[in-house]
C-alpha cells in the first residue's frame, strides 16, 4: 500500500475508534433516549409470541379507539411469525367489528378474517374533531415511520449491526417519558401534555398507566414500562409481519453465499494458477 493510503487509513481508523459510544440523534431538545433490548433485533431476532399477544391486547383495549390499523387484516393475527392467536378466537373477535359496505341493505356487516381492521373514525375530519384537532396516526407502519438514526459516522455502526429498531426505541421512549408538568419556562398548548423525550408538548395525553390492562396469568408486571414494551413490539410486528421468515431466509442466504464465494475463489485461483499476472 502506498504511503499516502497508509496515512489516510490510519487517520480514518483513529477517527472511528475515537468515538466511544454511539451518539444518538434525540429529537428536538429532548433527553437522550434509552435503547431497549428487543427480542426481534439482530440477525437471530424473532418475535416473542406472548409479548405480541399482550401488545395486541393493549392495542385493542387502549389504542384502537383512536388509532386505526388499516393495513392489518384480522387473519394476520392468526398467521405464523405473529401473535398466532387461534383462528376461532379471531373469527369471534372479527365478528364484533363492523365493515361498512354500501351495497348491503344495512350498509354494514360483521367483519371476517379476510377483512382489514376497520378505522375507528369514518373520516379524517371526524378523527380531528374528537381529538382536539390532532389526527391520531394509523398504526400500520408507524413503527417504521419513526427512527433514532445515529449521525455519521456511527450510522455505519448501525449498518454493521443491522439496527432497525429505531422506530421501536422511539415509540417506547415516547410512551414512558410523559411528565405531569412541563419544566420551568416551557410553554405548551392547552390540549397537550409535556413529553421529556420529545422535549415538547404532544396532543396525545399519556395513554398508559399502571394496572390499566389486566394480563391473563403470567406474572408479567403491570407497569407502564411493561405495557410500553409490549405494545411497541406489537406495533413493530404490524409494520413488519414477515420479520421472522425474512431473517431465517437471510441467514440461509448469507451462509450459502459465503460457501459459494469460497468455492468461486478456489475456482478462480485454480484457473489462474498457471498464469503470471
Amino acid at each position: 500500500m502506498s504511503k499516502m493510503k497508509k496515512i489516510f487509513s490510519a487517520l480514518a481508523l483513529s477517527v472511528l475508534l475515537a468515538i466511544p459510544a454511539p451518539t444518538l440523534a434525540a429529537p428536538a431538545s429532548g433527553k437522550a433516549p434509552e435503547l431497549q433490548k428487543w427480542s426481534f433485533a439482530g440477525i437471530f431476532g424473532t418475535y416473542d409470541t406472548n409479548q405480541l399477544q399482550r401488545g395486541f391486547q393493549i392495542f385493542q383495549e387502549v389504542c384502537s379507539t383512536c388509532h386505526g390499523a388499516s393495513l392489518i387484516a384480522f387473519r394476520n393475527l392468526t398467521e405464523a411469525g405473529g401473535p398466532e392467536f387461534p383462528e376461532s378466537q379471531i373469527k369471534q373477535l372479527a365478528s364484533e367489528y363492523y365493515i361498512i359496505d354500501p351495497e348491503l341493505e344495512e350498509g354494514e356487516r360483521p367483519a371476517i378474517l379476510a377483512d382489514q381492521w376497520p378505522n375507528p373514525f369514518a373520516t379524517e375530519r371526524e378523527a380531528r374533531e374528537v381529538n382536539g384537532g390532532a389526527l391520531p396516526p394509523d398504526f400500520s407502519v408507524l413503527a417504521k415511520a419513526r427512527n433514532l438514526a445515529k449521525k455519521f459516522p456511527m450510522n455505519f455502526y448501525d449498518m454493521a449491526t443491522a439496527y432497525q429498531e429505531g422506530g421501536a426505541d422511539f415509540i417506547y421512549n415516547l410512551l414512558v417519558n410523559y411528565e405531569d408538568e412541563p419544566p420551568h419556562g416551557v410553554e405548551i398548548a392547552d390540549n397537550q401534555q409535556y413529553n421529556s423525550f420529545l422535549g415538547r408538548g404532544i396532543a396525545m395525553m399519556s395513554p398508559l398507566m399502571e394496572e390499566l390492562v389486566e394480563y391473563d396469568g403470567d406474572g408479567v408486571p403491570l407497569t407502564v414500562e411493561q405495557y410500553a414494551k409490549d405494545v411497541t413490539a406489537f406495533m413493530y410486528w404490524m409494520a413488519d409481519p414477515h420479520l421472522v421468515s425474512r431473517k431465517t431466509i437471510g441467514l440461509n442466504v448469507l451462509i450459502f453465499l459465503s460457501v459459494f464465494a469460497l468455492l468461486m475463489y478456489l475456482v478462480k485461483r485454480r484457473i489462474w494458477a498457471g498464469v503470471k499476472h
Partner: peptide, 30 residues
Amino acid sequence: KDLFVIVVFFIPFAWFVFFAPDILGHADNY
C-alpha cells in the same frame, strides 16, 4: 474472476435486504 466478485458483492447486498432493508432509506417515507 468476475463471477467470484459478483458472489462476494451479493453478501453485503443480502445483508441489507434481509437484515437492514430500511436503513439506507428514510423513516419519513413510511
